[in-house]
Design a protein around this nucleic acid. Sequence first.
DNA 1: GGTATCCTCAACCATATGGTTGAGGATCTC
DNA 2: GAGATCCTCAACCATATGGTTGAGGATACC
Lengths: 108, 108
Amino acid sequence: MDAVFHALASGARRDMLARLSSGPLTVGQLAAPLDMSLAAAAKHVQVLERAGLLQRTVDGRRHICRLEAAPLTSAREWLAFYERHWSERLDALDTLIRATARPKEKEQ
Amino acid sequence: MDAVFHALASGARRDMLARLSSGPLTVGQLAAPLDMSLAAAAKHVQVLERAGLLQRTVDGRRHICRLEAAPLTSAREWLAFYERHWSERLDALDTLIRATARPKEKEQ
DNA sequence: GGTATCCTCAACCATATGGTTGAGGATCTC
DNA sequence: GAGATCCTCAACCATATGGTTGAGGATACC
């Protein structure tokens, strides 16, 4: 989980994942639009790979990368859980506001 | 977005958010169960605060912290988008497998 | 007023991170 | 075989991160 969130905490890496969602790309293709050296981009690919978000297959001298979205599920579930708590809390607040507002309406 | 994912990329900070989902806590209460100094835990609180995931109000000498789950929404939406791509891709693969499997059944 | 409590702040340290460059292995192309 | 291409690796550097300790400000308590 640490690894997944850490991998996502970089715009460059999220950009890579975004482009991979349209289909497999080589390391060079992933690196091209980024404003950094190939070696630096390759390190980002490694981070994604270690987080399980990217799978690599070697095809001759090219390394083909494809998105592996499975680890995103547990991350999304974690987020959804606390988001739910939050909206429940908002609902409770809403109920409270309505409950305290009603009597005042009667007073007026 | 960077800040949110970075804040979530630490077990200690996710633990803080988890306990905050049950209600407000002071910095001291957040720090207590963690195996580190108060000052170190207070730094984690700062990271959560800067990511907008935690709101602080000062009550005398105590600092009351409450969960602010709104930034989680955009993070979850980002994840859900790529998860969707992934399941669509799985569906496409499933369709492909069924399409190629049918003729073979006829051959047998 | 004196002391305990809660917390921040600053200084410091070790290590991790994110970038660079240069060298080179493996593969394709001619 | 020669050269270009794709990529990794190692070394290096600057800065960020995550922890520590010690000092101290503000507040609460007796």
